[in-house]
Design a protein around this nucleic acid. Structure first.
Lengths: 203, 203, 203, 203
DNA sequence: CATGAATGAGTATTCATTCAT
DNA sequence: TATGAATGAATACTCATTCAT
């Protein structure tokens, strides 16, 4: 029975994943509002109604994509943030991770940076809290660095965190909307890191 | 008669402006897609059909708001970018202006930072080009500073420009979505400026 | 004052006629329902509101065109129907007149044959009675001919009248919709006349 | 299973037919333009949206009604036109068939004779070609009769065909709009046939 | 008489969601 | 679980008509 149940879940999970992957693709291509549920179903190779067996509604699909992506990112960030590496390294690593995570998932990047803001309700209800969590992690890291003398103290840690988030978001947006070549993204990451690290240096 | 003629024109301009102001308000409150044309009309105190005497369609209202706002900003930025002030001052001024311009137009800020991305078509067709123009102005200023030895040369000017845009956008977004108190916005601006200026300093 | 009044009326009549002529043109081109009142106004060189100074509403414009055209036709038909000519001549004349009347007013022909049926209300309320009047005139002529031994008696005069009306309507319709060359219309008229006259001949 | 499959198809076909029958009824009553899609849906006992599962749009419903009716008529006409009967019989039969086909479908008759002309686009795009096809069939029969010496040769076969179509259309129109009693329609048919046959007789 | 800006009632069509199979 | 036919609420936009000037 356990096997059966697992098999069931696995089968379900597969279909669920297919739907999510299909949704990321069509959301990225057409935007959230312009995407029809039937288009997601078609791209996923399932019937329209099947989507409602795995998700509450269309909004829920977008929310899931967003939460999954951000949670994945947050888990990594938290790990890096409390690692034993020097603070500069941690910041650099975070930037690299954040951009790298999405580098091979361009569609996901577009969905997260662009589509996310398409529904005011989603933005305020789901994204804002996660956004704050993200800011908290980074700001915490900055504050730790300030306490230990690694970063200058005359600058608000949350302002830095927000600036960093925004900078990376804008870089990703440009990359997602334009012709994205990975090298440029990685180079941008290193320049961005250098900019922020120098900006944070104690003088 | 000149007065009369002015009055006449003003009458029309007034109605157009009333519609735009009403649209900014309801777009900020409910988002572009969740806003009904009839809501804009009601808020503006005109009939539904009147909106179509001044705008091609609902999209056109959002585009106009966005373009007006960005053009206004771009005009100021260009002026500052080529002014005679020291480069540090110019960067600081740009940051202050950009945040200050929207400080007393919180709804407009929300519409520009949030609603803008609600329509993929609008974003790619109208926002992307203006975004690039903005990046060009800032990147040009950075490059000038690099040439004259005011900024470090080992960092790509466009990456800096994008980062700055993103940082300010994120700060504005936080402010627009959260409880906005102007002092915090101004303080954030000065911290952000300091962060970027130190990050750009020649060593 | 009489002069003034006349001048006034003349001025008015001119404008009224301009509107009617413009309406015939655009109705023929686009059909009644697809024609906007503003299009009529533009074609007539007057303001939208002016139309309502001369006509009750859009329907009234079509009705007026139709009634004017049919009344004009009826007046001629009645005159011919009771003339002293041989019955065959009268029938021939009626056919020629009916087709000839519209030959140089192709737009009017299209409006009467096509647009007329576009509004069920108009058709039933205004056209049907006039149609019956028309049928009465022709049927009366046929009946007179039957009484005087010019036409065969074993055929219902109203059926003949309806058939003749329909035949001419179909010929006009083909001509109005297709490439209309007047010679063909006139030739069709003579063939049609011959067909009906032989069909009516006493044997 | 074949039954099941048939039942399934029948279910769909039934719904489609129900919509068409309902549309004929309301179109005949109120005309094409005055009929709301929701009225058709209500009369058919389906939801508004269901209509769009079977038809592209409101126009498509009218077109389908018209094409179905005319194709049905054309099929019969073609059969009669090339049958072995004497030419006079064929003509008589065609007239009887055409009127008879619609005798027990008064609403359909009204839709075809009246509503058809309600949309200029429909008329020119869909009706005109079918009208021409009809004319071709009749004209071909007349021409054959002329070749074989059954009909007089000094009269254009297409003019005769158009006249016959128009005559029958007018008779139907009168019948559809007025108080329709079948006997009168059948009697009118025989009178009309006699009129045209005598008109076509070789002398 | 003439204007044309403003009105707002009116409707075809779409599409997220449901539910009988 | 899966389907997809059916639903029907929801809305941008048009355009005949009005009326202040």
């Amino acid at each position: 029975m356990a096997v059966h149940s697992t098999a069931k879940k696995k089968g379900s999970a597969d279909k669920r994943d297919r739907i999510l992957r299909a949704a990321i693709k069509v959301f990225a291509k057409n935007g959230f509002y312009a995407t029809r549920v039937s288009e997601i179903a078609k791209a996923a190779g399932v019937a329209d109604g099947t989507i409602y067996l795995y998700f509450k509604n269309k909004d829920d699909v977008l929310i899931t994509i967003f939460e999954d992506g951000i949670q994945q990112l947050l888990a990594i960030l938290r790990e890096v943030a409390v690692s034993e590496q020097p603070f500069d390294e941690r910041i650099t690593r975070i930037i690299e991770l954040q951009l790298g995570l999405l580098e091979d998932q361009r569609d996901l990047a577009e969905v997260i940076t662009v589509n996310l803001r398409q529904s005011s309700t989603l933005l305020k209800q789901y994204a804002a809290p996660l956004f704050m969590e993200y800011i908290d992690v980074i700001a915490g890291l900055i504050r730790d660095g300030q306490k230990e003398g690694a970063f200058r103290k005359d600058i608000n840690s949350r302002v830095v965190a927000r600036s960093l988030f925004g900078a990376l978001d804008a870089i990703l947006l440009t990359w997602a909307l334009g012709e994205a070549d990975p090298p440029s993204l990685r180079k941008a990451a290193s320049h961005c890191a250098s900019l922020f690290l120098e900006g944070l240096r104690v003088r």
